[in-house]
Design a protein around this nucleic acid. Sequence first.
DNA 1: CATGAATGAGCGTTCATTCAT
DNA 2: TATGAATGAACGCTCATTCAT
Lengths: 187, 187, 187, 187
Amino acid sequence: MSKKQDIMAATLDLIHEEGLQSVTFSKLFKRANVGAGTIYNYFANKEELVNAVYKEARILMGESLLQGYDPEASLYERFKCLQLNRLNFGIHYPKEFLFIDSFSFSSYISPELRNMEDVHQSSEVVLSLIVEGQKQGMIKEMDSHLCHQLIHGIISSILKGYYIDKYPLNDVQVQQILESSWKAILV
Amino acid sequence: MSKKQDIMAATLDLIHEEGLQSVTFSKLFKRANVGAGTIYNYFANKEELVNAVYKEARILMGESLLQGYDPEASLYERFKCLQLNRLNFGIHYPKEFLFIDSFSFSSYISPELRNMEDVHQSSEVVLSLIVEGQKQGMIKEMDSHLCHQLIHGIISSILKGYYIDKYPLNDVQVQQILESSWKAILV
Amino acid sequence: MSKKQDIMAATLDLIHEEGLQSVTFSKLFKRANVGAGTIYNYFANKEELVNAVYKEARILMGESLLQGYDPEASLYERFKCLQLNRLNFGIHYPKEFLFIDSFSFSSYISPELRNMEDVHQSSEVVLSLIVEGQKQGMIKEMDSHLCHQLIHGIISSILKGYYIDKYPLNDVQVQQILESSWKAILV
Amino acid sequence: MSKKQDIMAATLDLIHEEGLQSVTFSKLFKRANVGAGTIYNYFANKEELVNAVYKEARILMGESLLQGYDPEASLYERFKCLQLNRLNFGIHYPKEFLFIDSFSFSSYISPELRNMEDVHQSSEVVLSLIVEGQKQGMIKEMDSHLCHQLIHGIISSILKGYYIDKYPLNDVQVQQILESSWKAILV
DNA sequence: CATGAATGAGCGTTCATTCAT
DNA sequence: TATGAATGAACGCTCATTCAT
């Protein structure tokens, strides 16, 4: 792995373990096994480093959310795919998920990055799916952003409980969650 | 007593505006209009100050969550009351809500405080309501903590979208949210 | 006892217990059982307080050093009286002795105070005793200040060893010390 | 290595000039011409710095005190060597001498350091010399620690008078002091 | 007189950043 | 590139001093 990736991986690890506030450069150097000045060959400052880590996580998330999405499938199949992708991303990449969840609204992350297209692509897919479902009379008439937030919020919240070992997330639970979130927005 | 309240209010404001990490004492002194040493008449150190602010927010939340709760009312009425209380707390006390949401799992908050009884009382009311509903065959059979997390997660997520002006939260939306979250957990 | 004396006694105690550097006003207030502002009714600032304590100790020492001094007695008798007075002062007033010993050359003590007449009276008695002895051919010809310092130094040093319990100071030891210091300066 | 030495030298200078209590880091930085953080590359904190300076002074003193000591020489020759070494150390290293003299019993100095072997070696040489002299009937029968303290005290006291220019310390005076201290403990 | 809450300059220390090697 | 000693602004905190009561 390159020095640059060592640094970014160490950054994400430290953010996950102790929170952004306690990611000091001296901890970072030791963890990443690089010299104090090496970071500045790759990143102009701490903020750019964190933003780069954020960007990488967002790209990874963006790729995950639309994985296997079949525009031709039924409304419910497409809905399940999107929700499952989000859930699986959170299960397999907890560090990335929590980092994105915590800092998307932080002033630490630059506005340009916050509005990256990657994840928004998936957001738009979700939004148009909602609108489509409402036109068909399947999905309840409500503000589409509110509806979007609602089904995402279920996944995020479930994941946070899972991370602190409140319950397992096996196939049974996963199916229950998908059903629940679907029923929540049906007419 | 006013100085203490000034300091705590300024702390909560700053946490809300810039995040806990950037609550420096120099910002705090200016915001609260007190001298550098004044804080130490009331709080042993920064951590105790933050914990005191957290405790106050938790007490306020604890009082709000069970407001008007009638144990004799129907299952659905009780459910709506609990969800509505949470939503209203978030609407009227956004700073408190976000602070609690962000830092309940932070190492900055002492474990004793994290496990205060106040909010947990309401948690147990919710949990037993879920179990009761499951016995009656109304609520879907699933891990009660998972179910709890699900309905809370909906409210939290909706509130976060509301805070960044994604949509309004008028009576219409509020009713939709209550219905959605109820349908999410019905059999 | 008056507030003023409470404060001065507490100051001397604290200096003796922890050293001047750690005599903070907050410790002082608690020890002396007075309010934070009360000191300023009696002393303009910390330095004046310390100087006042120093002055009081010096006055006490000045009184002690010439106690029972009989100008008509023999050279040796007068020498023994002076040395014994110094030794006894150190034995009975360890806090005062050590404070004077440590801070006589500190910049904390004002020059005027350092050159108070009280103890110097006794110094001049000692010096003229030395000169007289040298004229009589009993005391070795040497710089009288050097001689003075020598016999004082013996007493001071012995006291410091006594304070840390290196040895007892009973009559036997006291007699040995007086003899030794006398022999040290004889021709 | 130069920065470390700069810092230690500046520390010793400041202690000598103004006392330990006024060795603030801001004075230290200016004096040593280093940045505020540089000290922490070499010393964990202020106390460790002071202890390091103390240790260096003690090592220097330990080397000086037994210089040229010939165990085969006569009792008086050995006595003179020890006393002269101490006197010379004080004359050539006044800052080190006063620092050790003042702070050997300060809580600032760690107990391990206080009980270093270096200087104690010389103490034991002095003590056994005293005991030997007492067995031979040359040195007065008295507590050996008392006797030790007495002859050290003479040197210390003389040096303090010398430092404030009370008198010169040329060969004549030095010989007088050695004789006086010898006579003080003879039978 | 006596009080103690309030003050803010100054403390020891941390840590993002620089730069000579 | 890669390094890490050096830097100094900024941090949390202390404490002598003030002043309204």
